[in-house]
Amino acid sequence: MGGRRLIYLIMILAVGLPIVFGISQKPSRLVSAERMYDVVEKVRMEPGEVAMVWFDFGPNTIAENEPQAQVLLEHLFRRRIPVILLSQYQQAERFLTSIPSQVAKRLEAESPGQHWSYGEAWINAGFRPGGAIFIQSMVNAADISKFLGRDVNGMPISNYPTFSSIGGVERVKLVGEVTGLIGVLDNIIQFFQKNEYQPTIVHGCTSITIPEAYIFLDSGQIKGLLEGIAGAAWYSEILKEHFPQSENKELLVTNTALSAAHIVLILLIVFGNIVPFVERWRGRNG
């Protein structure tokens, strides 16, 4: 019992020390995040075309999904790609409001004179229940702005000039899915397609679903992947390389704390294997 508590304490200290002292290290290079950066960077938008980003996460995976949502939005905002935000998961409802506002505020502070305002840079279409049924219904709609109806502010989406006449789903040039939930990405992969139209999907996943996400990356059903905090941290590094004013210190500290915890955990596995071996050896030799 005491040993277990000691492990808890060691783990909390391993995580806490880099946070308290603000230690940050360069994150590990993740090719999937680079691929995603290229996809977002190269997507070309005609007037009226949009990106659609789904935030399908709640408090239970916010630690990993929030930084991913932030870096993805930051990149889209910097490229002035209009974004429709929505969710299949009710617990994400608050984050649809808070995350884009934070990103816009940060970008505006970084670049005085530039604005990223609601209604032009993004709109929040809110929580949409129904999962697969909702998605297949939207994909078949003649005009997505009309289909979605009103935003969370109660305004008809067609009232915002940028989003006034999107037209059919073919005008959604990029689909982002940030989630840690099982089945939510599947809904997008299975139903967000129509006849000849296959969207470019990028995905921010929690670490637990990384092995599964790779099979979609291999088949080309998703074009880019952010793997947990490490993915978001590497993406932020690429952003910083292209936009030196971009601030990512806090994310790097988080990633470093995570790295320290990993090292401790690997050491625990090693000790966990050595200690019983030594004890057996000692037992045998009196």
Binding site: E64, T206, S207, A257, L258
Partner: peptide
């Protein structure tokens, strides 16, 4: 094994976020 390694990362990330909230 890959799945376990990834799971560890997911769980520890949650811990990091909480410690960050408490400390900061």
């Amino acid at each position: 094994g890959a799945f376990f390694g990834s799971t560890v990362m997911a769980r520890l990330a949650l811990l990091v976020e909480r410690v960050q909230f408490v400390v900061h």
